[in-house]
Amino acid sequence: MKDPYEVLGVASSASAADIQKAYRKLAKKLHPDLNPGDKRAEEKFKEVAAAYDLLSDTEKRKRFDSGEIDATGAERPQHQFYRDFAGADDGRPYTNSAGFSDFINEDDAFAELLRRSQEARANRRGEDLRYQLAIDFVDSIAGTTKRITLPDGGTLDVKIPPGLVDGNVIRLKGKGEPGAGKGGPGDALIEVEVLPDRRFTRDGDDISLELPVSLSEAVLGGRIRVPTPTGDVTMAIPKGSNTGTTLRLRGKGAPRRGGGSGDELVKLKIVLPKSPDPELEAFVSNWDIGKNFNPREGSAS
């Protein structure tokens, strides 16, 4: 950082009053909020302010003069100036048009443009409001209605359409901030998070489910109950099914855009009884075909 005396343009013997005077003179010219369009004003102002912070503090100035400290580290903490806000949004409630209202009443193209943009402001549409909502996986497939509580205590009923995907945004027309003049209200935008389900996973319009089956169900086949997002259904398992055998429940997946539904894919997983069964052991040890069958045959291992 530069020599603070040089930055303020004062001699190193300057009095406290001279330093304040020099600073004020520079700050009036350089304060970023008094120069909203000058990007460089901020840099210069910071330099001047840091120099003043150092030299206006008698203790710090003494230590600087004696060489104990240098001019670094004196910068003021970063903050946003007023101009950054006055320039954003629509500047309400402070900004006003008194500075050019005389031009608006003229009869030329310039005035016409000004009038049009003023009108657009006067009839401004309300802001959109954003909310977040988490729903269960099952509700995302079957659809439901959820009520969210707004920060002001009001409530909003959100209809979740069947087949909604994680991250979808539901737009409720007219449920945002009120507009001005003829501008209608904004919308409420609800971003929906679908919570993961321990049973189901979704792949496009299809839903997958891993379903445990007993050895006898797998070997002999049978009818078993299978959960789907819209309730249990009965499904036939063919004789000789295996772990990994995937059965398809048509139309039990997520609804498709424009009609129809995806499928539910049921992947079977054979589960043996928890405690070893002597009868099963005896059977398997005498079962020659079973013992001679090598499921790894032809694979790399």
Partner: peptide, 19 residues
């Protein structure tokens, strides 16, 4: 004056966008 200045800057920005 600052409020008027920002009003003018805004009007100018809108004009620029329109043009």
């Amino acid at each position: 004056l600052v409020d008027q200045l920002h009003g003018v800057r805004r009007a100018l920005a809108q004009l620029r966008a329109e043009l």
